[in-house]
């Protein structure tokens, strides 16, 4: 069985963001980069499946500049067999349709039985790339899965709906699934596995060899939101802060009798 996992490198969301010179996206300077949280569940699910069925190869794929190779190494250290890097210095400027098209151009003749993606990326958050990829490849897709089981023939997935409700579905392979938080417990790479990952294959292909379509959307600008919330901000010594909050709670709420 051949399994593809699409991962994206994103900045830590606790970062202080600045805008790039063109004002169209965040500046990529001075940021700590990590694997998109949703994609960690996708990598883990692929590894769990390989551990269960034995005979499987897990390929991780990422579209982005050279720095994404660091994040791909984490995927390899979690247990993926090899990496395919679609090298694109300007991936931030590509829309989901272009990202999905580039991945599809690579995947179309690779006969993957299973593809996992995250349900959304933490920075762009379009929740489109996985479903578009399945659509271009012409394979069935189920989004937002929180449960996955393969019995050797069919896949059973639990799909998360609103308010705690889930639905259960079965599908044959090949198929694509987009992974939601809580699907499993992503492992931390161990030191020996981090060492082993350094020797694993990680091939780069320039995006120009794969991407042949134009963007369907364009970012006019990126900006900081207007602050609507006129809340009070308290900063300083802990003892002062508790005293200040206590008096605010006394004045503004009925909970401190």
């Amino acid at each position: 069985m051949k399994i593809l996992v699409c991962i994206k490198q994103v900045p830590d969301m606790e970062s202080r963001f600045k805008l790039n010179a063109a004002g169209t996206w965040y500046s990529d300077q001075d940021l700590a980069w990590r694997m998109n949280e949703y994609d960690e569940f996708a990598v883990e699910q692929a590894i769990l499946l390989r551990e269960k069925i034995g005979d499987a190869e897990v390929v991780i794929l990422c579209v982005g500049p050279d720095r994404v190779k660091e994040t791909m190494k984490k995927g390899l250290a979690m247990g993926a067999d090899r990496g395919l890097h679609i090298q694109d210095e300007a991936s931030y400027d590509k829309d989901p349709f272009q990202i999905a098209s580039a991945i599809a151009a690579y995947a179309s003749d690779q006969n993957f039985d299973l593809i996992f993606t995250g349900m959304q990326s933490q920075d762009r958050g379009s929740a489109q790339v996985g479903l578009l990829l399945a659509g271009i490849l012409g394979i069935p897709a189920v989004s937002t899965i929180v449960g996955f089981d393969f019995d050797g023939k069919e896949v059973t997935v639990r799909r998360e709906l609103e308010g705690g409700l889930k639905s259960v579905h079965k599908t044959v392979l090949p198929a694509l699934f987009t992974c939601q938080l809580g699907l499993n417990t992503p492992r931390y790479p161990t030191l020996p596995n981090i060492m082993k990952a350094k020797k694993k294959e990680l091939v780069s292909i320039p995006v120009g060899e794969l991407l042949k379509v134009e963007a369907l959307t364009a970012t006019t600008l990126t900006r900081f939101p207007d602050r609507k919330g006129g809340g009070v901000i308290l900063e300083g010594e802990i003892s002062d802060l508790t005293a200040q909050l206590m008096s605010i709670l006394k004045e503004k709420t009925a909970v401190l009798k």
């Binding site: 963001f17 965040y26 958050g125 959307t217 600008l221 990126t222 900081f224």
Partner: peptide
């Protein structure tokens, strides 16, 4: 005609235009 969407956990906003 342009749409506003939150990005990066709503720390930023993008204004997006369709080309189709």
């Amino acid at each position: 005609g342009e749409m506003v969407v939150p990005v990066c956990n709503a720390k930023l906003q993008r204004v997006v235009a369709a080309r189709s």
